[in-house]
Design a binder for these strands. Structure first.
Lengths: 243, 243
DNA sequence: ATGCAGGACTGACGCAAAGCAGCCTGAGGC
DNA sequence: GCCTCAGGCTGCTTTGCGTCAGTCCTGCAT
C-alpha cells in the first residue's frame, strides 16, 4: 500500500498530480527514519555529500555563520518541511541546519533523489515547486530585514510561523506552541537578544501578541496582521499546476 | 543546428548533461525575442499568468513594494539570468521585475515551460538547480541585511555583481560598468539613498572601491573582500551533477 | 537661454537599536 | 542543601542610520 499520508507527498501533490509510480518512489524516501537530539547539527556548512531530510516531528533552523561569529538564521523548519536540498544539489552544503527540539526525520540520500528525478520526472517538477515556495519565504524574510521595523519584523515572523503550523495541522486560531528562545528570534530577525526582549514586551503590553513559556498567543490577530503588513499569498497552497 | 551558445543552455549544461532533444527544446525558448525600454515593468506583483524571460542584454531588478510604499530589491538580473520563474510556477507573480536599462530578452510562456518539463525531464532538474542557485544568492543577501554593517553590505553587493558579471564575460579584473543609481543600491541594501552616498564616499576615501559615473573600480580587491567577508562559494559553477 | 527634473552630494538633528552591565528565575547536577 | 547555567528581563549609554532640508551638476525640453 502506498503511503499517501506522508507529509512530503501531501505537500507535493498539492502542486503536481503524481502517478502511483511517482508516489511509490516517494514512499521509498520515508524508509530511512532517524532521530536527532536537540542541538544536534544535522548539516554543517561546508560539509560535502550531506543528506537531505524530511521533517516528521520537531523544529529545526538553518543558518549561516559569519567570520566574526555572528549568526543569521535563514528559516525555521517545522514538520512536513524539506531541508538540505541545496546541500545535495551543490554537493557541498552552503548552510548549517540544527535541531532545535528532538527531531524525527527521514533521510534522503543523494542517489535516491537523483534516481527519483531520472525515473519520475514529474517529481522533479514537484520538488522545483516546493523549492520555489521556500525561496518565496526567504524573499519575504529578506523584505522583513530590509524594510521593516523591529516590531513589524517580530509580528511578521510570529504570524508566518502560526500560518505555517496551521497548514500542517499544528496550533489553532488562538496560538501555537513554540520552542524558540529569544536568541533564535534575534538571530532570525537581525536583532540583539536584548532588543527582542523589549520588542516582545511592547507587543504584549499593546495587547497584540504574547510569547511566554513556550507558547505564542495572538491576542489581536487583525491588528497584528496590519502592523506586520502580513499577506499569506506567498504561503498559499494553490491547486495543481500540472495534471 | 542547435543553438549551443544561448546563455541559458550554457548555464544549465554546467550542471546537468542535456541530450540533443533537451537542447532542441531549450532552443525553442530563444525564439520569442522582445525588447523593453528602461523603466518598463516586465512583471507586476499580483499579475496572473505572467511570462518568464531569459535576459540577453541589459540589467533588471526584482523587488517587492510594502504597503507604506517602501521598496526592497531582492536581486539584480544581468545577461544570462532567468527571471520570473516563480511567477509561472505560482500562476500569480509574487514580485515585480523592472528593466533598469534597455533590455533584450527571450520570453518563456507557461505552456512552453511545462511542456519542456514533461518532455525533457532532465530540463526540470537543470532548472531546479538554476533556481537553487538563485535561492543561494537570496540567502546571501539575507545574511547581508541581517548581520552586516552598511559598508560591509555595500562591499559585498559590489563584489557579488563584479563576480557575476565576470562569469558571463562582462567587466574585468579592475572593475565593471554599472547602470545602478544610488537609489537602486539603497533599496537593495535596506539603506537610505543619503546613507548610500556617505558609505560610497567612505569606501572611496579608504581606497577600497570607487563607484562613479556608471563605473565601479575595485581599488583594493583583497581588502574589500576581507571587509565584506565575501566568499564566492555560493556563485561557483561546479561540474555537472547528473551525467 | 531658460527652466526643469533626476541624480549625486552634504550638514544638522533625532531616534531606534546595539552594547554593556547586571539581576532574577527555574531546572539540573552533585 | 547549594552551585551552575541557560534563558528571560531591565536601565543606562552610545552610535549608526534615517530624516529633513537643502546645494550643485548635467542633460533635456521648450
Amino acid at each position: 500500500m502506498l503511503n499517501l499520508q506522508s507529509p512530503l507527498s501531501r505537500k507535493l501533490t498539492a502542486f503536481v498530480a503524481l502517478s502511483d509510480a511517482d508516489l511509490a518512489t516517494l514512499a521509498r524516501f520515508d524508509r530511512r527514519r532517524k532521530t536527532f537530539h536537540s542541538g544536534h547539527e544535522m548539516i554543517h556548512e561546508g560539509e560535502v555529500n550531506a543528506s537531505a531530510y524530511i521533517l516528521s516531528t520537531g523544529w529545526a533552523c538553518s543558518y549561516k555563520i559569519l567570520p566574526d561569529g555572528d549568526r543569521q538564521i535563514v528559516d525555521f523548519q517545522i514538520p512536513g518541511d524539506f531541508l538540505g536540498l541545496r546541500s545535495i544539489l551543490f554537493r557541498t552544503a552552503d548552510h548549517t541546519v540544527e535541531a532545535i527540539t528532538r527531531i524525527e526525520a527521514s533521510e534522503v540520500l543523494e542517489p535516491d533523489l537523483l534516481d527519483a528525478f531520472a525515473n519520475a520526472p514529474r517529481l522533479a517538477t514537484a520538488v522545483l515547486w516546493a523549492a520555489s515556495r521556500d525561496e518565496a519565504m526567504v524573499v519575504e524574510h529578506l523584505v522583513n530585514l530590509g524594510r521593516r521595523s523591529a516590531e513589524e519584523r517580530m509580528a511578521h515572523l510570529l504570524l508566518e510561523l502560526g500560518a505555517r503550523l496551521h497548514l500542517v495541522g499544528l496550533g489553532d486560531e488562538a496560538g501555537f506552541d513554540c520552542p524558540l528562545t529569544q536568541y533564535h528570534l534575534a538571530d532570525a530577525l537581525g536583532l540583539s537578544a536584548v532588543h527582542v526582549n523589549r520588542v516582545l514586551r511592547r507587543l504584549r503590553e499593546d495587547g497584540l501578541v504574547t510569547f511566554q513559556k513556550g507558547r505564542v498567543i495572538v491576542d489581536a490577530p487583525a491588528r497584528l496582521r496590519d502592523l506586520a503588513g502580513f499577506d499569506t499569498a506567498y504561503l498559499d497552497q494553490t491547486g495543481p499546476l500540472l495534471r
